[in-house]
Structure formats: structure tokens, C-alpha cells
Design a binder for these strands. Structure first.
Length: 902
RNA sequence: GGGCUGGUAGCUCAACUGGUCAGAGCGUCCGCCUUACACGCGGAAGGUUGUAGGUUCAAGUCCUAUCCGGCCCACCA
């Protein structure tokens, strides 16, 4: 005898191993089957997987397993992302915590080695999680964005873009994170409303001219001011344009200029122009040929400022400058002001607009065909409402800053010669006398060397070449993922067979960072978009709807859930809430519910097994069935399976999971199994067992993509009754719905019986009839068909409503001392001598009556409205008529019952 | 400033192209250890579908306005 409760621990670990050993997840590129391909959004190696991965990858797993069972060569390509800045930050933090070292203590080479070691540890932890979650990922086939093949792809991509002159180096004002000390691309910057202050400062007129008051949120940058700008149409300042004013604290004279960028009416109408530290100012400065003065270093410290402030942190300097301005009487006003602060998406520090030399990719030519692909529907977003934002982004695309001043990542494959100037490099000695790369310029025909490994200089033959110190944006390599995973640029058989992929499943928060880049790169290098469909999943939030974050302490760890409830329950709890595109508020109660469902499946199987064991041989589904509940369950089953498949194909996993959940728990367990119980002692035994086994087995297959472990485990025990030869469900076929089993008439008959049974149960509960007591019931109907059904299936009512001595006839009289219920056209009389509470019964009936009367009134009004009769579809009118007559009958029966009470 | 999105039972969410009495899970209440399952069984209570108008024979579903959330994009100091 099996234990009463399902214990996932006993099966999950075992099956996860067997699946890998027997290579159940391996795809076979042998031309036999159509491919169905999904490349995994490679998780960053920044730590353990979280619930977001749990959802995202489980959705992919459902699609992969479903298509595998549908006969496709389903290939879910596993892999990891090196994660650039994010990973470097994590490793640096660990290093600081564990060894009190910085990356500079280790030096670049040693640090990079440390990260590789980290990758090994963190990576293998992630692989273990893949297995524990039951994801059908072939572990022998893992890719990593930094492995050799992917590095080759990155190099090839860089080279081709360089050759097309899409990649260039330029001095620009870029987004700089002073904590990570690196440049970021525009989309790596987040905007956050922070409460701050707006200071009004007095800039005195030079040579006795008028003063100007400007408003700024960044007083510490006044030392970098090159001008004060006003709107050209601003009457107030018209006479001042061309004059000079003095920067407070330094008395440096700067011109007053007119520029449209200044908005009339905002603040004081005058804007200090600081080209080196503000994007707008940079443009204004360019238009007016202003001097660019940097006063903040890459670490966020003050430089080129009066000695007093030199070396101060920018935030400290801000306070000091305000204080000094106040003392100098030049601070006119200080007001509260909320403004959007740009922050680093990796560490949250305030971004500093920073003038520096960086590598860029020119994007407009890459975006154009991607726009076309999205507009034409060659790439479709699900849900569709993301199409517009994606298009808007592509249409307003900015050049992509791809260089990062960090150590972990693909090094920019550009080399310079230290022996000649042919590669565009200028060197100088720094304070310590080390030779530093100071300036790269490809003007004057200088050409750098593109190479993955150290080359000799093609210009002078010198061997003293040095590689560009920067690394590429981590998204540069992930943009190539859908084809780099198949070995591109090599023309491998896999590349041919599996590209383009069928589907991308990812979160909407990385549409621009990743999805858009893949589309552009795929078209550029492969000639085709990498996938026709993008399925966007929501974010898993905590149960109050907040984003899960370590700082809030509301993070749920999938591994904990697995330990407590099993992987199937963890998966199912996510899937049943996975409405396309919607965020999921996640609480532990949902996984408890899913765990209970697992137990329900297990126990249903246990029960069926107990009763099927005695039966010899196979249990084929009977071709002909005459018993109502058999016909009914087969009809329900075939409908459920069809609905589940349809929902999966529409990416509505919540609908699919719900359908199967309710079919199995409701129809199958609550009704069919209960009706089956008494039949085990009759001639019907083998037939019932056969239907139970087959419907259960089919349902297990239908559920397998959702809960792979428990379904595999149970199905394995039942396979001997079936004709299945394949050992694993993944190698068996997804159940097909067979229309010949769908029987609306049987479902209607069964619905009548279910309704009647429920009515009787309600009455029993209402009047506290002892659960064991059998009660007599009379059915009085005016409908011959209903009479026939009830008469024929007395047994169902006896069994499920604990009734006895049933009598069914046309228009019977209501016995005294009985409770009355009405279902369809049948009145149900339950004699309850001594048990009945007349007041209670009267109240119950009155309530019932009022509901029915509302229904009657509605339908009478509808049918009395000639526009309804004229305009509504004939079916609707007939339905209303039918309902009206039934309700009228019901009302009269209830009235009669009320009148007869006593 | 532009765009997207949501406001449905105590909670979390469903409801296909407008058409039964708006559903489920959890929670609550009542009764049950009925020989698969108390991680269970049976039953009940609970909703003017944010608000105000409109279109329609018919609206949670379409339109307008409005209030309250959430998100994304954008160079207003």
C-alpha cells in the first residue's frame, strides 16, 4: 500500500537524474521531425535563480514539453550569461567581504580568473536548479556567453560592424556610474523621482551690468559653467544677452547667451550652462562653441575647482557650495523640488553625465529592417500592446555605447601598436612613469588592429601591441544569442536546422535591452529575425504586489519552495496564475493549493490502482459505452484536453492549468470516481477500471508539461495497462481530443442529475440530516425526458445524495412535512418528519422564489420588448422563452411548497 | 509631457468576438475522520463589476468624462 500523502522528495530527485542519464531532453537534428526551438534567456551568473526565472523558464518548459509531445524536435537551448557589470559587482562585493580585497589589489588578470572561478561555482548551482525545477534542458549542451564559440561570434560581429563602419569611437557625454566606474548605455539608466532642492543663485553682472538669478539642482557644478542661457524671446533678459555675468565664488566672467533650450517661465528663466555635466547643456555648448570644463572625476570627486573643494565627493561639495553661497549672500532662494534622477540599473547610484571617449554602434541602419519586421508582423509581440513601445523605441533609436570600463566581459577586440602611430594610438607617461594609453584617433588614416589574440602591428611589424582596455556591454553578446548558440559564424548543421527559433519567452523589462537587439542582430547577420513570436511574461511580485527585492526582504526562494512543497507544486502555482503579460502576486498559499492538487492527483491514482490491480492485462478504453457517467466523463475529458491544448497554443497557461485542474478535481474525482465506487462490486468492474485508467493516464499526459515529476511517476505505474511503449511521457504523444466522444446530450443529462444531487445535499445540510442517514426523496416533474433520466439513474442519486426509496413521477403531490427544492423542471420533495424547521424552510424558499421571480421579470420584459424579439438572434429569443417557462414552473412549485408548509 | 495598464466577493484573480442568475482558489461559517485523499468530503454566506453619463433590444465587456493605483518612455534647470 502506498503512503497516504504524496512525497515529492521521493520522486523528483530520482527522475531528474534519470531524465538526464537517459538523455530524454536531447533534441535530434536528424531531419526526422520539424524543429521547435526556444533559446533560454540566459540567467546572469550573479547568484541563485529567483522566482522570475521560475516563472519564465517554467513557461518555456511547458511549451517545449508540449511540442515535444506533439511530435516536434523540440530544442530548448540552455545557457548562462556572463552578466558584465552585475557579475563584476557581485564578485567584488564577495571579495571585499571575504578577503577584504578590491579588484585592484588582485590586478586585472587575477580578478578575471576569480570571476571565472565564480562562474564555475555559481554556474553549477544554477544547473542544479535547472534540474530541480524539472526543466527539460539538456545539461550536456550548455552554452555560456563567454565560452569560446560565443567569443568567436562576438568577435565576428564586432568585425563585421566595424567593416560596415557602424562601430566608431567618439568623445561624447555619456552616462557614467561613479560607483561602477564605467559608462552605461542610455537604456541601462533608470529614472527615479527623488525629492531634492532647487537653488536660486545670483550671478552678478560683470562690469556693473545687471545680475541674473538662475535656478539649479546642481550648485556644485557652477565651477564648470561656461555661460548663462536665456530664451531668445524672453523680454526680461533681452538686454542682457551678450553681456557677461560672474560665477559666484570664483568671480569668473561668463557670457549670457540666448538659446531655445531654455524654457520660458520655468524657474527664473535663466539657465546655467555646464556642458561637461549635463546633456542639454552639452548641446547648447556645442551650438555656441562654449568651453567644456569638467569638475567631477570618474569617481565622483571634485577637480579643477577652488582648492577648498578639490577632491571632495560631489555630494559633500554640493552642501559646502550651498553653505558658502549662502554666506556670500548669493543664495537667493532654496525650494523643495522633486526631480527625476538618473540611476545606475546595477547599483542604483546617481548617474553622472560624463564626457569621455567610448565605442559606439551606429544604430539607425540596424533598426530600419527591425522596424519593418515588427510592423509587418514578422515578429509579433504577445500580448500585442508591447508592439507600439518597441516600435517607438526602434524609431527613436540612439547610437549604442558599447564600451564598459570594467574587467569582466568580452574585451574589445581592438589592438594598438606601441611602436608606431599607425594604429591611432597616442601614449604618454603617467605620474608613476607608466606608459598609458591616452588618446585613440582614427583620423589621418590610422587603423587599429582587429584581432581576438595579440597580433603584430601590420604597419610597422612591431610586436609590442596592446589591447583596448575596455570590455563590451554584456548585451552585445546576448544580442547574438539566438544564433551564436548554434555556432555562428560557422555554418553548422544546427544553425541551419534550428535558426530561426520559434519563440522567445522573456520579461517585458528587457524588451529594449535584449529583445530589440536580438531582432536587429538576427536580421543583420542571419538575414531573418531570430523568432516570429515574443511571449512576454509578467513579474513575480510578493503577495502585496511589491517587487521582490533583497532590501525589502520579501524574496521567495524557489529552492525553499521545492524543499517544502516540491517542484511540481512550485511550478503549478506559478502557471495557474500565468495570465499572459500579467504580473503575479505570489504568496505561499498558492503553492499550498498546488501541493494539495498534487496530493489529489496522487490519491486518485492510488485509488484507481488499488481497484485496477486485480484486473488482468491491458485496460483498453471500451469502444462502446452505454452507461451515462462513462459517456459523460469521456466527453468532459475530451473537451478538457482540447481546451488545454488550445490554451497552451495561445500562451494562456493559466487557462490551460485551470482547465485541467477543474477537470481532474471536479469532474473526475468529485463525480466520476464517486460514481465508480459502487460499480467495482458489479459486472462493470473491468469497464470502470478501464475508463478510470485511460482517462487518468490521458490527463497525466495533458498535465505533464505543467507538473512533469508527479505525472511521470504515476504514469510509469499505469503504463502496464496501456499500449504505450515509450518509457517517458515526453516520448509519448500529447492527448488528442476525439470529437466522437463529445456528447452534449449526455452532459445535459448528467447536469440534471448533478443538479438534483446538489439540491438534495443542500437540503440535508440545511436541516442537519445526520450524514449517515438515508432519506427518502420524491421527484415530481412535468417533463417526461427528465422523468426518464431520473428514473434510469436512481443509483447515482442513491449513491451521491445518500437517498433511498426514490419515487419519480409526473406531477406527484408534495408530502406533508417535506422540504422542497426545484431543479430544471423537477420538484424535489424530501420528507423530513421531525427534522424540518418550518421557519427556516419558509425563509429558504422565499429567498429562492425572489431570485426566480427576478429572472421571470427580466425575461418577461425582454420578450415583451419587440426590439429584442426582432433584433436578437433567434437562439437568444428561444432561450429566453425556454428559461421563462422553466422559471414560471419553478415559481409555481415553490409557491405551492410555501403554501403547503406546516 | 507622451504612452501603456489595472480598479470585479474579505484577499488574489477569471469571464472568447457585448447575450444564462458575474466564476474560481484562499479565507469565513455550518456539518462530516463516508473504507483514495482532513494536503480531504458535503453545504452555506459573501458582489449595484471605482464613480457619472452615453450607445444598444442587451454592457463587467463598447464610447465619453472623472477619481484612485501601477508601469514605461522623454534633455525642463
Amino acid at each position: 500500500m502506498l503512503p497516504k500523502a504524496y512525497d515529492p522528495k521521493l520522486v523528483e530527485e530520482k527522475l531528474a537524474k534519470i531524465w538526464q542519464e537517459k538523455q530524454v531532453f536531447k533534441s535530434k537534428n536528424d531531419g526526422g521531425k520539424n524543429p521547435y526551438v526556444i533559446v533560454i534567456p540566459p540567467p546572469n551568473i550573479t547568484g541563485a535563480l529567483h522566482m522570475g526565472h521560475g516563472l519564465n523558464d517554467t513557461l518555456q518548459d511547458v511549451l517545449i514539453r508540449y511540442h515535444r509531445m506533439k511530435g516536434f524536435d523540440a530544442n530548448w537551448v540552455p545557457g548562462l550569461d556572463h552578466g558584465g557589470i552585475a557579475t563584476q559587482n557581485v564578485v567584488e562585493k564577495t571579495l571585499a567581504k571575504e578577503k577584504k580585497l578590491t579588484r585592484h589589489d588582485l590586478g586585472r588578470e587575477e580578478f578575471v580568473n576569480t570571476v571565472w572561478q565564480w562562474y564555475k561555482d555559481c554556474g553549477s548551482a544554477i544547473y542544479t536548479q535547472f534540474e530541480k525545477m524539472g526543466w527539460a534542458l539538456d545539461q550536456s549542451n550548455i552554452r555560456f556567453t563567454m565560452d569560446e564559440e560565443r567569443a568567436a561570434a562576438v568577435y565576428e560581429c564586432f568585425k563585421r560592424l566595424w567593416d560596415k563602419k557602424y562601430i566608431y569611437r567618439g568623445k561624447r557625454l555619456i552616462n557614467w556610474c561613479v560607483r561602477c566606474t564605467t559608462a552605461l548605455s542610455d537604456i541601462e539608466v533608470e529614472h527615479e523621482q527623488r525629492s531634492g532642492k532647487l537653488w536660486h543663485l545670483r550671478y552678478k553682472g560683470a562690469d556693473g551690468g545687471a545680475d541674473i538669478i538662475i535656478a539649479t539642482t546642481r550648485p556644485e557644478t557652477i565651477f564648470a559653467d561656461s555661460a548663462v542661457a536665456v530664451n531668445p524671446h524672453d523680454e526680461k533678459y533681452k538686454n542682457l544677452v551678450g553681456k557677461k555675468v560672474l560665477i559666484p565664488l570664483t568671480q569668473k566672467a561668463i557670457p549670457v547667451i540666448a538659446d531655445e533650450a531654455v524654457e520660458l517661465g520655468f524657474g527664473t528663466g535663466a539657465l546655467k550652462i555646464t556642458p561637461a555635466h549635463d546633456a542639454v547643456d552639452y548641446e547648447v555648448g556645442a551650438r555656441h562653441g562654449l568651453e567644456i570644463i569638467s569638475v567631477i572625476t570618474d569617481k565622483g570627486r571634485m577637480i579643477n575647482v577652488p582648492a577648498k573643494y578639490e577632491g571632495m565627493d560631489r555630494e559633500v561639495a554640493k552642501k559646502q557650495v550651498v553653505k558658502d553661497l549662502e554666506e556670500a549672500g548669493l543664495l537667493v532662494k532654496e525650494e523643495k523640488y522633486d526631480n527625476a534622477v538618473s540611476t545606475c540599473y546595477r547599483c542604483g547610484s546617481a548617474i553622472e553625465p560624463f564626457l569621455s571617449e567610448q565605442w559606439f554602434v551606429k544604430m539607425d541602419n540596424l533598426a530600419a529592417p527591425a522596424i519593418k519586421a515588427v510592423e509587418s508582423g514578422a515578429v509579433q509581440m504577445h500580448p500585442e500592446n508591447w508592439k507600439t513601445p518597441l516600435l517607438n523605441w526602434l524609431k527613436n533609436i540612439q547610437d549604442w555605447c558599447i564600451s564598459r570600463q570594467i574587467w569582466w566581459g568580452h574585451r574589445i577586440p581592438v589592438w594598438y601598436c606601441r611602436q608606431c602611430s599607425g594604429t591611432g594610438l597616442t601614449f604618454a607617461a603617467d605620474k608613476q612613469g607608466r606608459t598609458q594609453l591616452v588618446k585613440v584617433s582614427f583620423e589621418d588614416g590610422a587603423k587599429p588592429i582587429l584581432s581576438q589574440t595579440q597580433p603584430a602591428c601590420p604597419h610597422c611589424g612591431g610586436k609590442d601591441t596592446v589591447q583596448d582596455p575596455d570590455v563590451l556591454d554584456t548585451w552585445f553578446s546576448s544580442g547574438l544569442w539566438p544564433f551564436s548558440v548554434f555556432g555562428w559564424p560557422k555554418e553548422t548543421p544546427d544553425l541551419k536546422h534550428y535558426y530561426p527559433t520559434n519563440m522567445l519567452v522573456t520579461g517585458y523589462e528587457i524588451i529594449y535591452l535584449w529583445v530589440a537587439r536580438m531582432i536587429m542582430m538576427g536580421i543583420e547577420f542571419m538575414g531573418k529575425p531570430p523568432f516570429p513570436h515574443v511571449f512576454l511574461n509578467g513579474i513575480v511580485r510578493d503577495k502585496t504586489g511589491k517587487k521582490m527585492s533583497k532590501s525589502l526582504g520579501n524574496v521567495v526562494d524557489p529552492l525553499d519552495l521545492i524543499k517544502k512543497y516540491g517542484a511540481d507544486a512550485t511550478r503549478f502555482s506559478l502557471l495557474i496564475q500565468a495570465v499572459p503579460g500579467k504580473d503575479i502576486p505570489y504568496g505561499e498559499d498558492s503553492v499550498v493549493g498546488a501541493r494539495n492538487f498534487c496530493n489529489k492527483i496522487y490519491n486518485a491514482a492510488r485509488f484507481i490502482q488499488m481497484n485496477a490491480e486485480g484486473v488482468e492485462g491491458k485496460l483498453a478504453l471500451p469502444a462502446q459505452n452505454t452507461e451515462l457517467c462513462d459517456i459523460w466523463i469521456l466527453s468532459r475529458y475530451n473537451k478538457a484536453v482540447a481546451a488545454a491544448a488550445k490554451a497552451i497554443e495561445g500562451y494562456d497557461m493559466a487557462a490551460a492549468a485551470n482547465t485541467l485542474y477543474h477537470f481532474l478535481w471536479g469532474d473526475f474525482c468529485d463525480w466520476y470516481i464517486e460514481l465508480a465506487k459502487p460499480r467495482f462490486t458489479t459486472q462493470d468492474k473491468k469497464r470502470v477500471a478501464a475508463i478510470l485508467v485511460n482517462v487518468l493516464y490521458g490527463t497525466l499526459k495533458a498535465l505533464h508539461p505543467f507538473m512533469p515529476f508527479i505525472t511521470e511517476e504515476i504514469a510509469a505505474g499505469f503504463r502496464k495497462f496501456t499500449n504505450e511503449s515509450a518509457e517517458f511521457l515526453l516520448r509519448q504523444s500529447y492527448p488528442a481530443s476525439d470529437a466522437k466522444f463529445i456528447n452534449e446530450a449526455a452532459e445535459a443529462q448528467m447536469a440534471l442529475l448533478q443538479g438534483i444531487i446538489t439540491q438534495i445535499r443542500t437540503v440535508r445540510a440545511q436541516f442537519n440530516v445526520p450524514p449517515g442517514a438515508k432519506i427518502k426523496v420524491l421527484f415530481s416533474t412535468s417533463d417526461a425526458r427528465e422523468q426518464a433520466v431520473i428514473n434510469k439513474y436512481f443509483a447515482y442519486i442513491t449513491a451521491l445524495a445518500k437517498a433511498d426509496n426514490l419515487v419519480c413521477g409526473m406531477d406527484l403531490t408534495r408530502p406533508a412535512q417535506s422540504a422542497t427544492a426545484v431543479f430544471a423542471n423537477t420538484a424535489i420533495y424530501i420528507p423530513l418528519e421531525g427534522l424540518i424547521d418550518f421557519a427556516k424552510e419558509s425563509a429558504r424558499l422565499a429567498k429562492e422564489l425572489s431570485i426566480v421571480e427576478t429572472g421571470i421579470a427580466n425575461r418577461t420584459r425582454m420578450l415583451g420588448n419587440e426590439n429584442f424579439v426582432k433584433n436578437a438572434p433567434a437562439g437568444q429569443v428561444a432561450k429566453a422563452k425556454e428559461e421563462l417557462s422553466q422559471m414560471q414552473l419553478k415559481a409555481s412549485q415553490i409557491k405551492e411548497a410555501i403554501a403547503g408548509l406546516k
